[in-house]
Structures are given as C-alpha cells and as structure tokens.
C-alpha cells in the first residue's frame, strides 16, 4: 500500500512537472489574437485617400451585432454632427422602415460583461442582423459593417463570428485604426473587394458622415 501511495504521488509530481514544462515553452499557435495595443502600422494604409473618396450619407439607422456599445458611440458621433441618426440595438427586419434611411450601419464585436446566463447569444444576434441587412439591401440602403471599439472587441470567437457575419454582407467596411492593428480588415477588404474606410479613432468617424 505504501508503495502504491508513493507511486501515485510520483505520478502527481510528474503531471505537475510536465504541465510546468509546457508552460515554460512558448506557444507556437496562440489561441487567439493578443489584446496588446500596438502602434498602428499606418504606412500600409491609404487613410487620407479613403477619407477623401468616401463619405456615408444619412439618415442613418444604427444597430449592433453582439450588443456591444459601438452602435451607441456611432450614434453619438452622428448626433454631435447634427445628422439624422437612430440607434436601435434590437432592430429587426420587420421593424425596419426602409423609406426613412439611406444607410444601415451595423457595428460588430460582442458585449463581454456577464457570461453564461447573463451573456449575449451571438448566434441569435447574427440571425437578427443577417435578416435585417438582407431586407435593407433589397430596399437599396447602403450597408456599412463597422468595427470601432478596437482590439478589445477582437479577442474571442464571438467577436470573430459577429465580424465575419456582418462584413461578408457589407457594402462598406468602417473601422478605426486600432481595430486594424494587425492588418486584418485591410486584408479582408482587399481579399473580398470591399470598400474600406479607416479613421484614426471613434471621434474621427464624424469626418466620413454626411
């Protein structure tokens, strides 16, 4: 019995040491994007050109895919500019009055406060927004997929799911520089032939709203 006891304890120590060694090594495949804030590699982008070429026309209807507050921020910026803008985070295809608006802006990235029962159901959000976007497209509205809350909204799989779902259907992608710290959106826009608007920060979004 003593021998068996010692054997089990030896196994425990070995398991601990093995896991230690794994921790000591650098992971070659980081599981997610690192949230570290990096200096924006602005030289790769043609920000001024895009700013000069593209402006978005109101009135705007703004919603969020993932219940993050980006839509509220976008609405605040539009209102500060004196533009007509409505924010409805639960907007559905059925409730959308297509005659009143020229542009539908859907912000992406998911709310992170509260997990489990208090969390956001990203699949339900995507379903709602995809239906909404399709209805708006049929009515001739310009669809803007936005990501304006930086890398903090590009950390987990829910963020990725909302970005993928919305950007695929968007006519224009609107981002802030920090959201593209790793060049993801630039590459995405190039690969998918989407128009990209990149501004320095959320306050600067006003420069592309009309």
């Amino acid at each position: 019995m003593k021998k068996l006891n010692n054997f089990i304890i030896t196994i425990i120590v070995l398991v601990i040491l093995m896991t230690m060694m794994t921790a000591c090594s650098n992971s070659t495949e980081p599981t997610t994007n690192n949230t570290e804030t990096k200096e924006p590699e602005t030289e790769e982008f043609e920000i001024d050109e895009t700013k000069a070429d593209v402006t978005l026309k109101g009135p705007y209807i703004i919603t969020t895919c993932g219940q993050s507050p980006g839509a509220v921020m976008m609405n605040m910026v539009a209102m500060q500019e004196g533009l007509t803008s409505v924010n409805d985070n639960a907007l559905t295809a059925e409730a959308l009055n297509t005659d009143e608006y020229k542009t539908l802006i859907v912000t992406t990235g998911t709310s992170m406060k509260g997990m489990g029962a208090a969390g956001t159901d990203v699949n339900a959000e995507i379903e709602r927004c995809v239906k909404l976007i399709n209805t708006a497209k049929e009515a001739g509205l310009t669809i803007v997929g936005a990501h304006i809350e930086g890398m903090a909204r590009r950390t987990d799989s829910s963020d990725a799911a909302s970005i993928d779902a919305v950007m695929e259907l968007a006519d224009v992608i609107l981002i802030i520089e920090e959201s593209d710290s790793d060049g993801f959106f630039t590459k995405y826009a190039e690969d998918n032939n989407k128009q990209l608007i990149m501004v320095e920060n959320t306050l600067a979004i006003s420069s592309v709203l009309k």
Binding site: T19, M20, T22, S27, E29, T31
Partner: peptide, 14 residues
C-alpha cells in the same frame, strides 16, 4: 500561479 498558468496555456486539444 505556476500550476494554474501551466494548465491554461496547454493547447485546447491537450
């Protein structure tokens, strides 16, 4: 902390 770090840094398959 080292034990905890070791576990959470394991690849998900492991």
């Amino acid at each position: 902390g080292l034990i905890s770090l070791a576990v959470v840094t394991l690849p998900i398959g492991v």
